[in-house]
Amino acid sequence: MLYSEKVLDHFSNPRNVGEIEDADGVGEIGNAKCGDIMKMYLKIDDDGIITDAKFKTFGCGAAVATSSMATELIKGKSIDDALKLTNKAVVEALDGLPAVKIHCSVLAEQAVRCALSDYYTRKGIDPLPIVGEIHEPEE
């Protein structure tokens, strides 16, 4: 498996690993059967700025690295910006991923949306029109 230096860096020194006790939005995606689960915690202030993001991941090197990079890319950003995060942006920020690992970046993108969806649900707002559908990976 040919991983970029950046992937290996984010794998061996993952940024933002852990939990947020009083998170405003928590999202979990994937399943253990397929070998990847990402759980994302977001802290969002009254202005809709993501002040903190943390993750826990069960998965391969790419799964850990994409989780780490996704949290880095949305920290300090507005919800609107976070919703614009694409898997492609995660892949590019990591200097590429092997073709068989692209699904990990999709999972990272969906984990962010999943956590944002939870944020809106907690506020009593229907997340579907804002966040859109969350795509669970196929078994």
């Binding site: 993952p14 690993v17 852990g18 979990e28 399943n31 253990a32 059967k33 689960i37 990402m38 759980k39 826990k56 991941t57 069960f58 850990v64």
Partner: peptide
């Protein structure tokens, strides 16, 4: 320590 699956196992929850 960074695995949500392990976290669930330790809480006695199912992860399937």
């Amino acid at each position: 320590s960074m695995s949500p699956v392990w976290e669930k196992m330790m809480k006695g929850e199912s992860y399937e």
